[in-house]
Write a protein that binds this DNA or RNA. Structure first.
Lengths: 116, 116
DNA sequence: TTCACGTGTAAGGAAAAAATGACACGTGAA
DNA sequence: TTCACGTGTCATTTTTTCCTTACACGTGAA
């Protein structure tokens, strides 16, 4: 059971990628049909540079993929589409993923001991 | 079916709450047994003020709950435990949640139009 | 009283994320 | 050539998070 899921680090990256209104809307939009950057920017009402950053983040997390294509008019269009990710989050799933966390991120020392 | 899931805003909050190594480890730890703040801080190797902040964030997202109890020695102990949340994330689930997003967060105007 | 251990919060700085604006480059059509 | 539309990046500012330090309060035991 439990698809084994992503590693702890990957999970954090995916969650961080989804934990943003704009990126959530990007995923939602691409869930219906693939789209190219400029068009997507217009539909979402965000600037291209900003959209570009969000797209990179989503793609880095493996939630969307983009590829450059040439339109009939010879223009380079970058089309993005969603990958069919499937994250099932429960406390136990999190517990499992945490075992593969390589960024404990605190100083890794025993503890910051404060009162001694 | 599809539990109907949380609203878009709630989803963003939950995702943001989970998108952090420390908070993920908190959830993982509490998935096994409930625990009180100071003890949890020692186990995770983080300072109490820091843990406190993370706990608040998790509780605000509805992923954990805490209640103050009096120990036999009369000390006030705040015990936290995980709620049995169950988030199923797919592109279509995101698309559904986005419909209830109240923080489009961009200026809400049509678009920043840049070249015209 | 003092110490150990529990609770909590407020102030301030460092670091990361989000957002904007100004660029540069390429192509087809007027 | 110039315009419209596509691609991309870099530099900078604004905003959020994250984290530490320091403090305050309460109780039981030495």
């Amino acid at each position: 059971m439990s698809v084994g899921g992503p590693t702890g680090d990957d999970l954090v990256e995916m969650l961080a990628a989804l934990a943003n209104p704009i990126r959530l809307r990007i995923v939602a939009t691409l869930a219906g049909r693939r789209d190219y950057v400029s068009q997507l920017a217009r539909e979402l009402g965000v600037s291209r540079p900003l959209l570009h950053m969000h797209l990179r983040r989503l793609e880095a997390a493996g939630l969307i993929t983009g590829r450059l294509e040439l339109s009939d008019e010879g223009k380079a269009m970058k089309y993005y589409e969603v990958t069919d990710f499937d994250l099932h989050l429960t406390a136990s799933a999190v517990a499992e993923a945490v075992q593969t966390l390589t960024r404990p991120d605190p100083g890794k020392g025993p503890a910051p001991k404060e009162s001694t």
